[in-house]
Design a protein around this nucleic acid. Structure first.
Lengths: 323, 323
DNA sequence: GCCTATGATACCAGAAAGGTATCGTAGCAG
DNA sequence: CTGCTACGATACCTTTCTGGTATCATAGGC
């Protein structure tokens, strides 16, 4: 079974391009080092080093493994340092899971506000899709989730912060892109459609596919990709159209966007947390979100968003009634 | 010394919230499991688990460690899978290091083209700043670098693909933002300036600071941050102005941009590779870049870019003469 | 073709992991 | 409040694995 020791050893060998010298750096003798590398190669079932050459060289697989091993070792060190810091300073940690699109909405300024108002907490940000957020909340891996899918888990409470209108991304210089006016969902019938994320299901892709189906807009072809970046890249490459939340328009300016019109052509932004989690930071986050919404940031443009009235009244208790 | 075994054991305990059950899952007896967790805590110098409670709970540090351990273990599996795939299929790997801003330029479509023209290669993308690309090239960790700083290492050849004009990001609703016309560099004297990245030096931050100095535009205050995202966030929060390559304008639309005018108010995009690396993929990449430039993509708008003539003539050999 | 630097192999010693038996205690039932 | 039970810690032994020493095999420069 693979082991961090083997990674450290391999990195030393790859860096030095010499077993003897690497063994020296590691403060061990050369034969055990040779053996550990052999074990590693055996475990992977792939040779990493070309030995019949002086100085030794890495195979293609070895080069890849070297690069990745460096990253993993760096990550482990970060992890140790972060854990020690939190453990020794008795700092609190607030772990926030979020879907990528919230990066183009209020998340950055929320995090900034949170750091200002609670400098003593360690804020951990983890990108994860909506369905991953529920188990992550229950296991305590995150404390707060910002997602885009409604759920009904009895142990997790969700609160709709806003409903964001959807836009369709269209390749420039096509018929649909001649107009900037809002477009009915039904008008997408017969188009090649690109959806994301491919997995895990159910996800935002299904939300989009449901929307199309409920408007009898059967696409000519559906292509699934892993991320919104890729999806928009494909739109730019004229591979089809793609439906995204309006705030994500910022990601690319080389495609054309049109607002979608029709029943359900929105996507909610949902804040979730554990039922009965009475950490003071949950309340603080809710208060900061209200504050932020009251400031009318550009991504909250009423042309593209609908904010449920309870989210803007002064009573935090009202939020909990959303589900 | 920390060990992947300990991570796996800790993850099992954290997930099960029960040592005995976790030991079962791991196919070992409970006492060794307890001991490994103790060793782990000792190594970190931080308690991870609150045992005087049934079921056991994680400390704050433990929660953080759990989350990160999951990520590390996932990363290790990915690494094994990728290495096996490359090793067994004898696929080639082309490793590309790039600075973040090229993501807003031609990198995505170059990668797409490369995948189309050479589906048998594994393309690895690694974000790294310009100065990190030189050692990464020499150690073989990457084969191609897209950076923004000129260098003069005898073992690495660089080729200027284009000179991109710089723009200054200005908070909305300030005096400088009232106009959209080009701005002289000297006009930035006395402004609070935000630069990135903080490290490693020398980097793009120094390029910007040199530019200001050479135009006698002494800033009132310089703040260094780690990434362009943060820098633009601070601009949006009215903490100052920030100079970025024009293609990065797409990143945020809630700040105001003005083109910079003046000697040297550009930033090159430089392709680097090892001297004497005659992999056919290097040539392919150069050909694809030429092809791409010939298509006049939106990020190559001549209002914002200057392409050296040798990069658009038909002769690949000319490129090598750039340095 | 020889010499040297360097990696592999063989084999032994010590450290560390895992197993079994047993003890101590949190949490709950009554 | 008391005793029971589930479950983690401790003690101690066995097995496995890592590291060390001695020695052999070979790539590459002269």
């Amino acid at each position: 079974m693979m082991d961090l020791r083997q990674l450290r050893y391999f990195v030393a060998v790859a860096r030095e391009r010499n077993f003897t010298r690497a063994a020296h750096m590691l403060h061990i003798a050369q034969p055990p080092l040779s053996r550990q590398i052999q074990l590693l190669e055996e475990d992977l079932g792939v040779p990493l080093i070309i030995r019949k050459s002086r100085p030794i060289r890495l195979t293609e697989a070895g080069r890849l493994f070297y690069e990745q091993a460096l990253q993993v070792l760096g990550r482990v060190e970060q992890m140790q340092a972060a854990t020690r810091r939190v453990g020794l300073n008795q700092n609190s940690v607030v772990s926030i899971g979020f879907v990528a699109s919230t990066l183009y909405g209020g998340l950055p300024s929320l995090v900034r506000k949170l750091r200002q108002h609670a400098p003593e907490v360690d804020i951990q940000l983890l990108e994860m899709v909506s369905v991953q957020q529920i188990p992550a909340l229950k296991e305590g891996r995150i404390d707060i989730g910002f997602g885009r899918l409604r759920h009904s888990d009895p142990n997790v409470v969700g609160m709709v912060l806003r409903e964001e209108r959807l836009v369709v991304a269209i390749p420039k210089d096509t018929a649909l892109a001649e107009d900037a006016s809002p477009l009915a969902v039904a008008a997408l019938a017969g188009q090649k459609v690109i959806v994301y994320p491919k997995e895990p299901r159910p996800g935002y892709a299904d939300h989009v596919l449901n929307l199309l189906q409920s408007h009898d807009a059967r696409p000519a072809e559906v292509q699934e990709v892993r991320e919104i970046q890729t999806a928009l890249g494909l739109v730019a490459a004229e591979a089809g159209v793609c439906i995204i939340p309006s705030s994500a328009r910022q990601m690319r300016s080389d495609v054309h966007y049109r607002l979608l019109e029709g029943e359900g052509a929105t996507s909610p932004v949902i804040l979730s947390h554990r039922v009965g989690d009475n950490s003071r930071y949950i309340e603080l986050v809710k208060r900061l979100i209200e504050e932020m919404y009251a400031e009318n940031p550009p991504w909250l443009d009423p042309a593209y968003n609908f904010v449920p009235n309870h989210a803007s009244d002064g009573s935090p208790a009202a939020h909990l009634e959303t589900f």
